[in-house]
């Protein structure tokens, strides 16, 4: 895109600046639109599984429900509790939202369609996703109210626990792909299974890691069955209890942007990103971004399916799963996979 703006007569620096801003907007606006639609899909999926109708009043098939909700919260008054720590109280939703958007900078939507094609893309995502806990912890503390505070405590412990095993799973993928760059990781998956199937999921050693990664990404985004931070039966609404209007909406948008990010990571790391599922020439006629969005949407459907069918974990079960099951398992697989790769001469 820099080249295009240079051809309009801008100097390289200005063209780069304009291209970057345009790229940011090109990612952020469709993402916000996708979040709005995905909330609608989520509610429709739960409704179907619960044998209800779901949103069906605003617009055709209720398609405009999310926009109506957005307008509603936009027109509401922002209420700041008098006991709250005002600065941090207002900063918390902004942090959540910004962090949720920032991680998208390194996601490749198609070959070469990426805002920042950096060497350490995967580490960047790990770093940014480890920041998302701050929004929750800050809001919980600044609200100066006991339920948000409990929620903040739970969030801090939960997210650290699952990040450790996510880190080891990423190590497994990086070992196989030989790069931290997400584009190279996707390209390394081409024809991985018997030379015809694109994706690391078709691999006896990496498939269990994908299962662990999927469950950990549920925990990382605080979806059911790991939504102890906003367990409505115990904590009212958890860290969001004291929030209203746009501040609440920012939490909401940030949460769904994070969920979409985790879905796209599942796609990129294990299901071949923008590559078609099978390495067969006619399938490459379909643009890569279509495959990428289809796969991401499939994972989003899995997320809502889990949400509608699974009961919430108890806190000790959550900790046990993270530390006593996933951590030893992913650590073991790092050893097994690196041993297998060395033994089969993967790097030579």
């Amino acid at each position: 895109m820099t080249g295009f703006f240079q051809s309009l007569g801008l100097s390289y620096e200005w063209a780069w600046g304009v291209a970057t801003v345009a790229g940011v907007l090109l990612i952020a606006f469709p993402l916000m639109l996708a979040v709005a639609m995905v909330i609608y899909v989520d509610r429709k999926v739960w409704a179907s599984i619960n044998l209800r109708r779901g949103p069906n009043v605003v617009g055709p098939f209720g398609l405009l429900q999310s926009f109506a909700d957005g307008l509603k919260v936009f027109l509401q008054e922002t209420i700041i509790p008098s006991a709250a720590n005002k600065g941090i109280f207002l900063l918390a939703p902004i942090v959540t939202f910004t962090v949720a958007l920032a991680a998208w900078a390194v996601i490749p939507f198609d070959a070469g369609v990426v805002l920042a094609d950096i060497n350490v893309g995967l580490l960047y995502i790990l770093a940014i996703s480890s920041l998302s806990v701050y929004g929750i912890v800050m809001s919980g503390w600044a609200s100066n109210s006991k339920y948000p505070f409990f929620s903040a405590m739970r969030a801090a412990a939960q997210m650290i626990s699952y990040e450790v095993s996510i880190g080891f799973i990423l190590v497994c993928v990086v070992l196989w792909a030989g790069s931290f760059n997400l584009t190279e990781i996707v390209m390394a998956q081409r024809g991985h299974g018997f030379g015809i199937i694109n994706g690391y999921w078709f691999n006896l050693l990496l498939f269990p890691m994908w299962v662990v990664f999927f469950i950990s990404s549920l925990a990382e985004t605080q979806r059911v069955p790991f939504d102890l931070t906003e367990a409505e039966s115990e904590l009212v609404a958890g860290y969001q209890t004291e929030y209203s209007s746009m501040a609440f909406a920012l939490f909401w948008l940030g949460e769904y942007a994070n969920i979409l990010l985790m879905c796209s990571l599942n796609t990129l790391l294990f299901f071949g990103g923008w590559l078609p599922p099978i390495d067969w020439a006619p399938l490459y006629v379909v643009p890569g971004i279509v495959w990428f969005l289809l796969k991401t949407f499939f994972f989003f459907f899995l997320f809502s399916w889990v949400m509608a069918t699974v009961p919430r974990y108890r806190y000790d079960q959550l900790m046990r799963l993270g530390w006593k099951v996933f951590l030893p398992m992913s650590l073991g697989f790092v050893v097994v996979i690196s041993g297998y790769l060395m033994a089969t001469g993967h790097y030579s």
């Binding site: 790990l126 770093a127 480890s130 920041l131 806990v133 650290i160 990040e163």
Partner: peptide, 18 residues
């Protein structure tokens, strides 16, 4: 830089804050 963010901001500072 990434390690600094992952280890210090993502883990150590969270425990401090905790």
């Amino acid at each position: 830089a990434m390690l600094l963010v992952i280890v210090y901001v993502g883990a150590v500072a969270v425990l401090f804050l905790f």
